[in-house]
Every structure is written in C-alpha cells, then in structure tokens.
Design a protein around this nucleic acid. Structure first.
Lengths: 125, 125
DNA sequence: TTTCATCTTGCAACAGAGTTGCGAATATAG
DNA sequence: CTATATTCGCAACTCTGTTGCAAGATGAAA
C-alpha cells in the first residue's frame, strides 16, 4: 500500500477533525486535490488499513473518523463505543470510554456493535 | 390519509414479516402491484402515520418494520430497542425487551437511540 | 348516488452516492 | 535508474431515492 499525496492529505484531514467526515465534506475540504473517485478509493484503503473507521449515520450518511483509541489496527477490529449524531449541525462524534451494557437472547452470535445516540451536541444545545 | 390498495398490501406485507424489509424486497414481493415511486411514497406515509418504523442498517440499507411493541403511534415516537443485523442472510430483526444501559457525558442531549448488533442470527449460526 | 375537492398514482426525468474499466502516471523495491 | 505493481483521472454506469405534473381514485357531503 503506497503513500501518495491524496492519501496523506485525506488521512491528516480525518485525523485532525474532532467529528467524523463524509465524502462530500472531504471533497470540499481538499478542493481540487484529486478526483472524486480517488477520494472514494483512498477512504476504502484507509479503512482496509485500519487507520480510519467507517460510520453509517442514522440518516444514512456515510462518515469516516480516525481510530484514535484503537490499539488494534487490523481492518476488521471492532469499535465498541458510542457515536453521537447531532440533529442540528449533523456532526457525528465518537464518544470513547462509554461502553453500553446489555443482555440479549443467547441464540444470536454478536461480532459487531453499532450504537448511535441522536440529539443535540454540546455546541448546539 | 387515504386507504388505497397499494397501502394496505404493503402494510400487510411488513406486518406479517418477522424481519425488516427493504424497498427492493417489498418491490419484489408485490411484483406489479404498483410503481416503484408509489412504494416509496406509501412507505413514507406509513412512517408518518407511525405504523411502521424506518431502520438504517449498518451496511446503509434502509429497511422498514412494523411497530409491534409500540403503543404510541405518533410519527415521532422513539424506538428504544436493539436491532439485530445478520451478516450472512442480511436480515434485520427487532429485539424487543432488550434495553441497553449506558452513561454518557452530560453535555449531550439525547432524544433518540439507534442500537444495532451484527453477527449471525439463530437461523444462520 | 352523484358531486367534488383532495389525495394518490404512474410516468418521465432528475439528483446524489458510489462503482467499474481502462489507459496514463507514479511510488518504491531492487 | 529501471521495472513493476499501485494509484490516478476520466468517462460511463448502477443504484437508491426524489420531484413535477397530468390522470385517476377516494370518501365526505349534498
């Protein structure tokens, strides 16, 4: 996996953002850096590398965020933390260190968790 | 809000299904009943009426399920239960009576919850 | 039952998100 | 520096969902 201009720029952008970013936001922020398609391909690569994780927001918008708190960087590592989705500013934030507790029927085999709370973020409330 | 053929057929289909259904699945199951666009509009109406709830799966696929356990049928009522998404057969099931417990920073104002567990469903494991 | 305003439908066209094929450009190991 | 596998840009395409509008259906009231 090669280190290209587009890749490092996009990786930095995501790493420095406090909220998860969508393809559209990344495209706007890197204006003219590279083609739309390249952004999609770079994002796929970053996810494969385990540098970044992909979040599907409750409104269906796909966002990408840095794996700040993840020590395991294989592409299949789990993200057992809560995401917060602001209904006003549409920002998505990773709430690290907030692990939910639940019990469920034994017949199900769980391998991944996806927990998103919606409402107002500190900036909007 | 009127009672039409398309609406009642689609409502029955969703009500009788044990798993959440996507637009594509509904279209296949009602083959020729009505136009693609009508299905989208009927689904929107059913959600507005509070008869059905809309689920965005972890893979981004939009699914619709009956509000079995909901007594409140206003269009904004909350669904505080877990969804289970099978990675093999792609089915999405509502796990009623499984309420998760969690604590989070006070600065956030939560109004909605979205919790999906992925893995293998009883049929697939 | 007939009328009529209003809601619903079908069609066509459009919009946005993401994917694919391919030839050209380029990063990096040797 | 060269060779080669990776990455890029472009164009075209797919899939999902939306919108405008004319025609058709619903159901409440006369």
């Amino acid at each position: 996996m090669r280190n290209t201009n587009a890749k490092s720029e996009i990786q930095n952008l995501i790493a420095e953002s406090t909220v998860a970013l969508s393809h559209t936001e990344i495209q706007a922020a890197t204006k003219g850096l590279c083609d739309r398609v390249t952004i999609y391909r770079v994002l796929d690569r970053l996810v494969d590398e385990g540098q970044v994780h992909k979040i599907i927001n409750v409104d269906g918008v796909v966002k990408y965020a840095n794996c700040h708190s993840c020590t395991d960087h294989t592409h299949t590592h789990a993200h057992a933390h809560i995401h917060f989705s602001c209904q006003k500013c549409k920002s998505v934030t990773c709430l690290t260190d907030v692990e939910p507790i639940f019990k469920l029927p034994k017949k199900y085999k769980v391998s991944e968790m996806n927990f998103t709370l919606s409402g107002l973020c500190p900036q909007c409330s």
